[in-house]
């Protein structure tokens, strides 16, 4: 069902705009959050990632990927982010915000990325009710009391559901050998 990035990229090289669209939707958010760790500003990060994809499309014929597409995207994003920081003004701003934090290592980040992608898949597979509770609690950041009111269930049930989800996610991730 999910097409690998490599297939998408090879189609993009043959001018397939819908594959380009798919690749964009697949990686936009994760690249933005990665670039934010470097430039320390999510608005700038979004601009950088958008420019990266615009360039990817206009240079699509020239792209050669040796390893894998995700590595390529993350490396390109990192380079763009570092280029962005070359402007003195931007660097100062970023350093002020990041203080002495090191730039993330690519490989570290890719392992993390793999884990997150598997986690996302596992969340998708959760039973409907458990997923709803988890999303309201962790994504919408609702309090147990608010969830209880909205879904008309007890707080104890919510806790049970969360615990069930967590156990499910653990075994799902173990199956995908994500740890």
């Amino acid at each position: 069902m999910t097409k690998t990035d490599e297939i998408l990229l090879s189609r993009i090289k043959q001018d397939d705009y819908s594959s380009f669209n798919l690749l964009f939707f697949k990686h936009y958010a994760s690249l933005c959050s990665f670039v934010t760790t470097i430039v320390a500003d999510s608005t700038n990060a979004e601009d950088i990632v958008q420019d990266l994809f615009i360039k990817l499309w206009s240079d699509r014929k020239k792209i050669v990927v040796y390893k894998n597409t995700k590595h390529y995207l993350f490396r390109a994003a990192k380079n763009s982010a570092l280029n962005f920081l070359r402007t003195e003004k931007n660097r100062k701003k970023a350093i002020n915000r990041l203080e002495d934090a090191d730039f993330p290592q690519e490989t570290e980040d890719l392992t993390q990325e793999d884990f997150l992608q598997k986690l996302e898949n596992c969340i998708d597979q959760l039973p409907e009710r458990s997923k709803e509770v988890l999303l309201l609690s962790r994504f919408e950041k609702l309090k147990h009391k608010e969830i209880a009111e909205r879904l008309d269930i007890s707080i104890k049930t919510i806790k049970n559901q969360l615990w069930k989800s967590l156990k499910y996610l653990k075994s799902c991730l173990e199956v995908k050998s994500a740890f």
Partner: peptide, 15 residues
């Protein structure tokens, strides 16, 4: 690790 991962994914929803 799962819990922290969920938080990162939640944070990403803003993009």
């Amino acid at each position: 690790k799962i819990w922290e991962g969920i938080d990162i994914l939640a944070e990403r929803k803003k993009y």
